[in-house]
Nucleic acid binder design. Structure first.
Lengths: 294, 294
DNA sequence: CGGGTCTTTGATTAGGTTCAATAAGAGTGG
DNA sequence: CCACTCTTATTGAACCTAATCAAAGACCCG
């Protein structure tokens, strides 16, 4: 029962795929073909420094295609591989005890997911394709073995995991402190940035997810998301038509915050410069913030 | 300026500490002594299977003590070491552009922190001692080197990082979907569980953090936290007196949820059992949830 | 004992949810 | 190809949770 769907899906890239040699051409992506990537391509996709490997083409990583709506892995399913998005859009979700979905992320090109399975050896979340996707499989065993022979790769993977953690932290921070408008604004900006990175237009793009999914991701209801988008539209910050978004005033979106749950905290901290446990807090921070890539 | 505080602090455990041999007795913790742990002790603290090492006592990990209120690392400071809590309580925080603190976690015995520094090579958060603390230093270089020689350790560390990620996910989920009461209830339960793990009473304990810090952590104001605790007190779920908390009805706390932002979503999904993209969702899930450690 | 911090409690407000109804697409089948 | 249905999106109105503002009491440390 559990593996039913997976085997169905995997059957799209049957064992015979092994015979398909990976042409080492850049981005050698075939429409519906089973494809393999070498280590360099893997690093490229992950946006990490390429690993200088001797036998590049001996190490090949299998690709798998998923169609819109298909599930890549489900909660509780035994973990054995990490996934890297080569193309397409997905969502990862948590399901609570009442069947409510909580969207955790929208993985897209260059993102790694499945990491949450390492700890318990079962995936802690569920991943679903929001569009047709091409994913690179990275069997965990293979990966750890690789780390031992390719030191830079090992470090790079730690780095990617760390990046995920930082992203989650930013998410927590956003949910904990920002107003609905600020959340939606930031969401749009981050999407815009991602699209730019991927070589698409940062000014005009289509949302791959529903208002409901956005709302879940941002800790809002779909109505609030819709209303907020409409409001941004009226003010002229963006143009909205269903899934199509046009970014009109990126700067305004970036700086939009509206004194939310925290205007008081700021004052408290400001007036706290007096002697206190961590008394050098303020001064140090001033110096640090210039160095820090916040 | 930047390293000023660190060097002050580090000076508490000077180079001469090297001469202090780590007695391999369990929990060989001295009040104010500089201490070293071997690999086995490290694994014990982290709650991961002990690594069968040949030369256990050659690899020693330095401890450092921090006093209440001291900062372990700050945002933007160059990253080079991970920290493991041997004893004591801390908080990690993000500081936004207005100086507002956002509490991310309350590390305590067995927790690892500093991981967010790997990616950018600078700490992305700030860690502050909420009580006197004894921390084990785990220089990142040393750690990665170790991973190559001790395979189980490597896996264990991936596991710990994965655990952190899962924790953050749970946090996001909580912030995104639960009511104030449910958040506070869960917070108390998780604290209670942690205290139990550490061998303290799960029924009666002292909070190490202020209402303000709890509120920041849970995405609430300090007033709401205070009111909610008072309410729980009135209902008889807990007893509260300032920092002292008595857990009276753990079960009620665990199951407390009060139909929050999501009572509608549940219905939507329930009635969605019809044919849909991921159509086997519901049935599979039922089977999965028995297996899954949700 | 006094200044500061932390906590509690009350009154009021506002942002966001909930409920509800309509409209706009997208996919399906006659 | 169009009607029919299902999903998704928009918008309005009422309600409610939690934030905000305010003030007083408790605790801690010097």
């Amino acid at each position: 029962m559990l593996s039913t769907q997976m085997s169905e899906i995997r059957s799209e890239s049957p064992a015979t795929a092994t015979s398909v040699a990976a042409s080492s051409m850049e981005a050698g992506w075939q429409r519906q073909g089973k494809l393999w990537s070498n280590l360099k391509e893997l690093c490229d996709v992950l946006r990490i420094p390429a690993v200088s490997s001797l036998a590049d083409d001996e190490l090949l990583f299998q690709h798998v295609q998923f169609k819109t709506g298909q599930r890549i892995h489900t909660i509780g399913q035994p973990f054995d591989t990490l996934y890297i998005v080569h193309s397409g859009f997905l969502k990862t979700v948590l399901i609570d005890e009442f069947g409510n979905e909580q969207v955790l992320s929208f993985p897209m090109k260059g993102d790694l997911f499945g990491v949450d399975g390492i700890h318990t050896r079962r995936y802690a979340s569920e991943a679903v394709a929001l569009s047709n996707c091409d994913l690179i499989l990275l069997p965990f065993k293979k990966f750890t073995a690789l780390g031992r022979t390719h030191v830079e790769l090992e470090h790079a993977m730690y780095s990617v995991m760390s990046r995920e953690l930082v992203r989650e932290q930013a998410m927590v921070s956003m949910l904990g402190a920002l107003s609905a408008e600020a959340r939606v604004a930031r969401f749009l900006v981050s999407l815009s940035d991602r699209f730019a990175e991927m070589g698409y237009s940062s000014k005009l793009f289509n949302l791959r997810m529903t208002r409901h999914e956005i709302g879940s991701y941002l800790g809002l209801t779909l109505e609030t998301v819709s209303r907020t988008l409409s409001a941004f539209n009226e003010i002229g910050l963006i143009s909205v038509d269903q899934r199509s978004i046009g970014i009109k005033d990126p700067e305004a979106l970036k700086t939009l915050r509206r004194l939310p749950p925290s205007s008081s905290r700021a004052k408290q901290i400001a007036s706290k410069k007096s002697k206190q446990l961590a008394r050098k807090t303020a001064e140090d921070r001033a110096a640090l913030e210039q160095l820090a890539a916040v």
